[in-house]
């Protein structure tokens, strides 16, 4: 009897110590929409490289949402019930994550949106880049290379996705500033290089010699257009071509002069900034540990309590391509 009591007491002691230790460590989940693409891969790698994770302050788990809103929903339920302290959330679509956020909110879990916004008031904070801005920047760069006049084609993302909608808004805003620029074709290639390749080939047939600029809403599709131009025996240097995201292959293409511009969406800052924001809510008087706040002085920490943090875009051109390439090599080294 006494032995049993003693044993129970010991057990309670051990368990409570366990809890106490766990209390010093913060469990954070990185909820990606899917790990099949390069971009989310970089984002997840950046989380793992955050100083707080490396030092053991944060116990990080990455979740693969498999491009399915319902998968993300159930992952949120898992994290909420397992007592995660915070979730860094990249939803598959702007409209598709509100229920998941509500689940976490009900369990008092902090949710920091990253990269893609969620249409929900319950989001603790959001850090990302404004897609309208990038769309504007790339279209403007293409038009300027064309000398402010001529014909462009736009290769769009999957119709209805927030990135497609906002980047298109930016594209059209820039084009509207140049009355002598004409949009010849506008069509989706679903972020896919192979689809964009076929699409561009067909356009080159339909409009021989009259296409001057290609606005790809992501790099993969811009790269598909580059392949199509080369396959048609034309010189890519005669075209103004831009894409968004700054994937490795696009940086190479810019280095080689095949693409004029790729706009780097800074996965590292979006990811590491999100950890800082989450920790700011968990620890009183927390000072951000990642480099992104130094890299972008225009993005202010403000005590970590802002609703929205806007990570600026970095245009990658021939001038800074080599430098960006080195950075990327460092991040993708296995």
């Amino acid at each position: 009897m006494r032995k049993t009591a003693l044993f129970v007491a010991a057990l309670v002691f051990v368990v409570s110590i366990g809890f106490a230790q766990a209390g010093q460590k913060y469990r954070i989940g990185g909820a990606t929409y899917g790990l099949a693409g390069e971009y989310m891969k970089l984002w997840a790698t950046a989380l793992e490289r955050h100083p707080a994770v490396q030092q053991g302050l944060v116990d990080l788990t990455i979740f693969d949402g498999r491009y399915d809103a319902s998968v993300q929903q159930s992952q949120f339920e898992t994290m909420s019930s397992q007592g995660y302290d915070a979730i860094l959330f990249v939803p598959i679509d702007i409209e598709a994550g509100a229920a998941a956020v509500a689940t976490a909110h009900a369990a008092d879990v902090i949710v920091v949106g990253s990269n893609t916004r969620v249409n929900s008031d319950l989001l603790t904070a959001y850090i990302g880049s404004n897609d309208v801005v990038s769309g504007y920047m790339e279209a403007k760069a293409v038009i300027e290379k064309m000398g402010g006049k001529g014909n462009v084609v736009i290769i769009e993302g999957p119709i209805g996705q927030s990135a497609q909608i906002e980047r298109l808004e930016g594209n059209l805003k820039a084009i509207a500033e140049y009355p002598e620029v004409n949009v010849l074709e506008r069509r989706t290639a679903n972020w896919s290089r192979a689809e964009a390749l076929a699409l561009m080939e067909n356009w080159l047939t339909a409009h021989p010699g009259t296409i001057h600029g290609v606005i790809g809403q992501n790099d993969e599709m811009a790269l598909g257009a580059v392949q199509a131009i080369k396959a048609a025996g034309l010189d890519v240097k005669d075209f103004a071509i831009a894409g968004i995201d700054g994937v490795s292959d696009a940086i190479t293409a810019v280095k080689n002069g095949e693409m004029d511009l790729s706009i780097l969406q800074d996965a590292v800052s979006q990811a590491q900034g999100a950890i800082d924001i989450a920790l700011g809510y968990l620890i009183d008087g927390y000072e951000p540990m990642s480099d992104c706040w130094k890299d972008y002085p225009e993005m202010k920490w403000n005590g970590g309590k802002d609703k929205t943090y806007d990570v600026p875009w970095t245009p990658i051109t021939k001038q800074n391509a080599d430098e960006q390439w080195e950075k990327r090599q460092d991040l993708t080294a296995r």
């Binding site: 790990l35 099949a36 390069e38 891969k41 392949q227 080369k230 490795s248 292959d249």
Partner: peptide
């Protein structure tokens, strides 16, 4: 395929090889 590539595209391919497609 994802395991093999770690989810990243494999780029910077041999120029002779590209001939078979281009």
């Amino acid at each position: 395929t994802y395991i093999y590539t770690n989810g990243m595209p494999i780029t910077d391919l041999d120029k002779t090889f590209l001939q078979i497609g281009q």
